[in-house]
């Protein structure tokens, strides 16, 4: 099930989404009507299935048609994968920041690091390493950069 927490930051309505998005997700009910400026924080989304993708696109396309400015922030790996798989997943919105997956070379722990998409564009696939929070070892980006960051080139 999806959980939505809504906050207001000036003129921007911020929606913090967490959980799984599926055929049981009714965006109209959990998000309410669209607002002129919406920030969708996707940090807590673990999974989204095909019916969830359909519901997502249907809802955000309606927002797009009504002139809403959409901004997706802190996109989890599950959301980044969909952005890359479905060309119109963001429905005309901008992707402000995403989580990159990392893996510790010593203890194999999975980590994630938040990056602004503007900064990633400047890095040109030269991604930094992180310090493992568990063993202080070196953690490197654990995906195929050309796949995971494909949407940056679109």
């Amino acid at each position: 099930m999806i959980q939505v927490v809504r906050e207001q930051k000036g003129s921007i309505s911020v929606y913090k989404l967490s959980g799984n998005i599926s055929e049981d997700t009714h965006f109209d009910d959990v998000m309410g009507p669209s607002n002129p400026e919406m920030e969708i924080n996707c940090k807590g989304i673990l999974r989204i299935n095909s019916m969830g993708v359909k519901a997502w696109i249907k809802y955000f396309q309606t927002c797009q048609k009504s002139g809403t400015k959409l901004n997706f922030s802190e996109c989890s790996t599950a959301i980044v994968e969909q952005i890359n798989l479905i060309s119109n997943f963001t429905c005309g919105g901008t992707v402000e920041s995403i989580y990159l997956p990392f893996s510790c070379l010593s203890c194999k722990t999975e980590l994630s690091g938040l990056f602004k998409t503007e900064d990633l564009k400047k890095m040109k696939m030269n991604l930094p390493t992180l310090k493992c929070t568990k063993c202080s070892g070196k953690a490197e980006f654990d995906d195929i950069p050309e796949d995971y960051l494909a949407f940056l080139g679109q």
């Binding site: 095909s50 019916m51 798989l85 060309s87 119109n88």
Partner: peptide, 21 residues
Amino acid sequence: FSKSEYKVKASSFNAGIGLSI
């Protein structure tokens, strides 16, 4: 669907993208 746009078909219950994903 990374090359072509995904069009939501309101008339069908399923999404039609599951196996591709």
